[in-house]
Nucleic acid binder design. Sequence first.
DNA 1: ACGAATTTGTGCGTATGTATT
DNA 2: TAATACATACGCACAAATTCG
Lengths: 239, 239
Amino acid sequence: MNETDEGVTRWRRVADRIRSAIAEGTMGERLPPETELAETYGVNRHTVRRAIQSLSAEGLLRAERGRGTFVNAAPPRLAYPIGPRTRFSENVSAQGRRPGGRLIRADTMRADGALAQLLDCAPGAMLHRLETLSVANGVPLSIATSHFSVERFPGIVRAYAETGSVTEALRLEGVADYRRRETRITAERVHRLDAEHLASAPDAIVLVSLAVDVDLDGRPVQAIRARFPADRMELVLRP
Amino acid sequence: MNETDEGVTRWRRVADRIRSAIAEGTMGERLPPETELAETYGVNRHTVRRAIQSLSAEGLLRAERGRGTFVNAAPPRLAYPIGPRTRFSENVSAQGRRPGGRLIRADTMRADGALAQLLDCAPGAMLHRLETLSVANGVPLSIATSHFSVERFPGIVRAYAETGSVTEALRLEGVADYRRRETRITAERVHRLDAEHLASAPDAIVLVSLAVDVDLDGRPVQAIRARFPADRMELVLRP
DNA sequence: ACGAATTTGTGCGTATGTATT
DNA sequence: TAATACATACGCACAAATTCG
């Protein structure tokens, strides 16, 4: 190893050299095997593995058991417009993709304090919980968990199952139209079950959007917690 | 180790048991040392470390060299409103925090294709690049890199240095007012230098906001790429 | 002030498992 | 089947940071 960057741990130096080699294009699409990298950099294979682990966490590399370690091509992110009239199917089809959705789970739960405040209902009130996976061109784009008041929308689950659309289901339940009142966005590591549905790496990052839709009278209709894989999606806001 | 969850790797089982112990409250604020955990779970210390690494990545734990491994208390996130008139100092002071900013770097660069399109200038045009760190109550909240056309705003850096405010600096350069035209939001792992400035863990997650401000005639004024630590901030949109 | 004990971080060697070629 | 390549796991040693007597 080079002695110029004294004070930096070996695996970090290895990671930097691999990153540079990729940036210069001297690495190619596929990395040499770990044993070979260990030899060329003069370190133990574990040290190479620690470096590769770090670069994989950044999204630069992708290690596949039995096959090799590959350089990730950075695909362009799909834009997801957010506004007062955000609707998933319209968003995706506008970009020439074939939208699709699948109901993952439907059950009931009791509102905790935060949900009760968002939905303007009593804490402990029964809520329908709908979990849906959105897909475009076969690529999972989001998991959304929607919460509806059971008292106000008793048949929402059946209506959604029949129509496949929240907009249509709400219309059947007497909500002519709705709009977005507030969206809160943060990010976190993907949860394990979400990672499976989203076909993401177990340590991938998701954008988390917590939104409230209200009817034309301003009454809360649904609270939605959507998770978007951050390496495939970006949220776009236009005032 | 328990033999009921056959087929799952040991470090994952250890991680699950630690997570459960924390959830049940039987773990306390500080974890036992790695050697002790290894003994109680009947695995090697490396296996415990792999589990702790995973839980740290989730944000549940925090390992401090020489001190121990601690359970992270989840602090409430600070809300950052985004809208057509987003201004940092107004945002933060509205929440009873004392805002502050610091200029990290100021230099020039050439516009790549993406920046040129955002700023409506020629690719390769010279741009001022201003990197600023925003702090509230001593806690770093964001790093923002602003790009301005050198041709149009030759004195923007000096003006910013004197006034400490982009709004004021732009006024000195002849821009009476500006508004947000577009904001694109995604998320990624924090870069190393950003992590130092933001006082984040090296594997923390940042929300990345790429925004364009335009003057009253609709001409692009600045392109901003801001990074927010996702464990401390959430972006809030109200139509 | 200083050294010993404690605790996490890094690194190497070895062995074995598992998926792919 | 055999060879290859990444994944997991153990053991040992030492480094670096902190704590405490």
